[in-house]
């Protein structure tokens, strides 16, 4: 017994064997060089512009703003990408694709820009990871098959899991050190010791604000707040995906009535052949009812 329903799906697609083969070639070309690199390049730029410094520097990763800002910014792009892959292909990997893509871009930057070019050690510019959150988000969409439930439960988990999943990476940097009689975290000291001419200390936004009511449990309050805003952001960006991701043709049927048709389903029809021509040796079709 087959593991997947692939054979049934291929049969239902009504494509001839050579069409199936061609579709796999399209998958390879479209997915790796176009979709993946396109997403990681644009998402990387989007993320660095909105939350760059929080992710660049170990001494920016505070309990309040880092925890709040990162999930909100990181859920935006996946929202639109998830819409596209889910709505048109029922593929539940939009968030994982976006965030692994972001991290591929980030690691290229860490190695080439921060480490090789600017000579900062990689631990000082270690990025956070939200791949676990993305997997949870994608699994939620697959299981609920509802973007609304995904926004409520999946995005909530997406934001809430950010801090615990990154704690193993950054906990070491919160160990206390004493320098010149001052108590600092190791992250503070690393930010101090590695000279950044264009990034003075005051640019950091460290626990500025009032999300600190529950006896110092700042990080969880921030995560809750971040989760709610992330839900809103996900919804907005899902709709942005809907706005920019529509693709259809206006098709005139045999009875002369115009209707909207999904662009994929028109491929291989006489209407498509009339619009785009035919291969050599294939006669141009004549639609019934037309002279």
């Amino acid at each position: 017994m087959a593991l997947f329903r692939t054979a049934e799906i291929i049969k239902a697609s009504k494509l001839p064997p050579e069409g199936v083969k061609l579709s796999r070639m399209i998958d390879a070309i479209y997915f790796i060089p176009i979709a993946y690199f396109g997403v990681f390049a644009t998402f990387h730029m989007h993320f660095d512009l909105l939350a760059g410094d929080w992710d660049f520097w170990v001494d920016w990763k505070d309990r309040q703003f880092w925890v709040t800002v990162t999930p909100i910014v990181e859920v935006m792009y996946p929202g639109a990408i998830m819409y596209y892959f889910w709505t048109f292909y029922r593929q539940p990997f939009g968030a994982t694709l976006s965030i692994t893509g972001l991290l591929v871009g980030k690691w290229i930057t860490i190695v080439l820009a921060w480490y090789w070019w600017a000579n900062f050690p990689a631990n000082f510019v270690m990025p956070a990871t939200m791949v676990s959150s993305a997997l949870i988000l994608d699994c939620t969409l697959l299981l609920t098959r509802s973007w609304m439930l995904t926004a409520i439960f999946g995005v909530w988990a997406f934001a809430m899991m950010f801090n615990p999943s990154n704690y193993p990476i950054f906990a070491y940097s919160h160990q206390p050190v004493v320098v010149d009689g001052q108590l600092l975290s190791l992250a503070d000291y690393m930010g101090f010791t590695f000279v950044r001419t264009g990034t003075p200390e005051y640019i950091r936004i460290i626990e500025v604000g009032s999300l600190r009511t529950f006896g110092g449990h700042t990080v969880w309050i921030s995560a809750f707040f971040s989760a709610f805003i992330s839900m809103l952001m996900f919804t907005i960006w899902w709709q942005i995906g809907h706005f920019v991701g529509q693709s259809f043709f206006w098709v005139k049927g045999k009875r002369g009535v115009r209707h909207r048709a999904n662009d994929i389903m028109i491929v291989g029809t006489d209407e498509y052949a009339l619009r785009h021509g035919t291969l050599p040796g294939v006669p141009t079709p004549v639609l019934e009812g037309k002279s």
Binding site: T6, Y30, Y89, Q91, T96, I99, D138, I264
Partner: peptide, 21 residues
């Protein structure tokens, strides 16, 4: 794990066939 998840779907037809269905 992220690439494993994407790979789980990459081993099967991804786009054109699924869209038609």
């Amino acid at each position: 794990l992220g690439f494993l998840w994407i790979g789980w779907f990459m081993v099967r037809p991804m786009f054109l066939i699924r869209a038609r269905v």
